[in-house]
Design a protein around this nucleic acid. Structure first.
Lengths: 263, 263
DNA sequence: CAACCGCTGTGACCGGTATCACCACATCGA
DNA sequence: TCGATGTGGTGATACCGGTCACAGCGGTTG
């Protein structure tokens, strides 16, 4: 990947913006590489635009630029004017919102293939969330102006965008249900664990799940305090529901977990 | 408005589906009346499609059918396969989601001009919310199949839909912040009251706001119990922040209310 | 190596709130 | 006219979970 021009990203430490960093960015016109990277992308089918007609893909490639982000980098910050969309190629990005008194709510961890900043870019309103890189990532960036004019030319792409937004909205509603409609924190934690992307189910051992989040982050996802998360994990272990080995978590008794999460 | 054919709506009592009712519906081809009603609609500017090119509006009129709904009627239910979108012309519709154990979370009260069921219709996934009529309403209905083919033909309309969805998503995020990031119930109530559509500010009296919701419903909007809402209202009255006269609520000390809601 | 940092693990405490159990009132339909 | 029903108001109580305080424990970095 050729590196040529630059653009600015924002870096934050402990939720506070401390400065600006620049990341490498390829010259926009080198579209062919991007088409290729798109084709090679394992998430091609889920990707928003990869199965558009030929002309659309080419046009899209022309306005796309790729960049790599280190852990801790910030793609955009809640409240910023929308610069454009980021299509996550690989890595992981945390999407969160913060209140004035410092409390943070993590909405979700975006996986490769997702389009970030879509709603703000389309509506023109400020980014509603903050996007922090938690796993070194590569993302394709499309500026707002170019993205909008592309959508105006390609009606079918606009429809896809609408569908994508609709799905994002629905998952946000599902999140609200989890947080708003549950009585206890254990209920929320149980639901959170059950919704984790399930790794290979390992026979009678139980289900193996990769969980790289800290207790603090889990707490921010389910709207609880760090200590209660710690305590509930201990509780679940004692009840033979869970087992933790490093960063992999084994659900030994899914049924019991589901009964705690009862919905 | 001519009434001719019929279609089915669903009626629920106490959150439980008890039967089907039929409401009157005009024959679809009588498009001119609907264009006219659209033109007369006071919310024309905010409406999704009313400022499309002429051909688009006509086409839209052809696939739109209008219906009136009594208080208590249900436009669609969470979990149902999406039948289409409802464009609310007048009245009020409550959008809510319910957990298995009966607890309800009201997301918002839709006002005239809003498009309901949009995300489900676009994505094809089940309705994510339940839409109950709280104030006698009139709504234009467009079936999913017709709506989608319309969007495919009119790319600019698809873009508008995307924008609308983006805005809905952003307001959902704002809701999540209110519910997820606040410590106390009084904080949530204060925020809820401040976001109410402000009526005319009546000099030194304070701000007059129309509030037709019951305490129970307010509780369901902010994720609290009915009793605490009652108690907090009493508390706010004692502190000279509020005054209640029938269904109008007077905010006498907005500053103090804002300091409770501090964000 | 010591110093430091972020993460996990616990104990103690106590305040906010859900819950239950009532009562008072208004409205409405049989 | 009289229940039935929905709504607002209030007290008593239990308890979940937030907060504070601190300790142990692996990393990393000087």
């Amino acid at each position: 990947m050729r590196m040529a021009s630059r653009f600015q990203g924002v870096t934050r430490v402990k939720g506070r913006i401390v400065g600006l960093e620049t990341f490498m960015r390829p010259p926009a016109p080198y579209g062919l590489e991007i088409i290729e990277s798109c084709v090679k992308c394992p998430h091609r089918e889920e990707r928003l635009f990869c199965n558009l007609p030929e002309a659309g893909v080419k046009r899209l490639a022309g306005i796309t630029s790729s960049a790599s982000y280190p852990r801790g980098a910030t793609l955009f910050v809640e409240g910023q004017a929308p610069r454009g969309v980021f299509i996550l190629c690989n890595g992981q990005v945390k999407l969160s919102t913060t209140s004035a008194d410092g409390k943070t709510l993590i909405l979700r961890i975006a996986e490769p293939g997702e389009v970030l900043g879509l709603s703000a870019t389309v509506t023109g309103k400020p980014y509603e969330l903050t996007a922090d890189v938690v796993e070194p990532s590569q993302a394709n960036f499309i500026s707002r102006a170019e993205f909008l004019s592309f959508l105006r030319e390609h009606g079918d792409a606009a429809l896809r965008v609408a569908q994508q937004l609709g799905e994002t909205y629905q998952s946000a509603i599902a999140e609200m249900r989890n947080i708003g409609l549950s009585h206890s924190a254990s209920e929320k934690l149980a639901r959170f664990l059950l919704e984790l992307p399930a790794g290979e189910t390992n026979g009678k051992d139980g289900i193996r799940v990769k969980l790289t989040l800290t207790h603090e982050e889990i707490a921010q996802m389910i709207g609880a305090s760090r200590e209660t998360v710690t305590r509930m994990f201990a509780d679940f272990k004692k009840k033979q529901i869970l087992e933790v080995k490093g960063s992999t978590l084994i659900i030994k008794n899914k049924a019991k977990l589901a009964s705690i999460a009862r919905e």
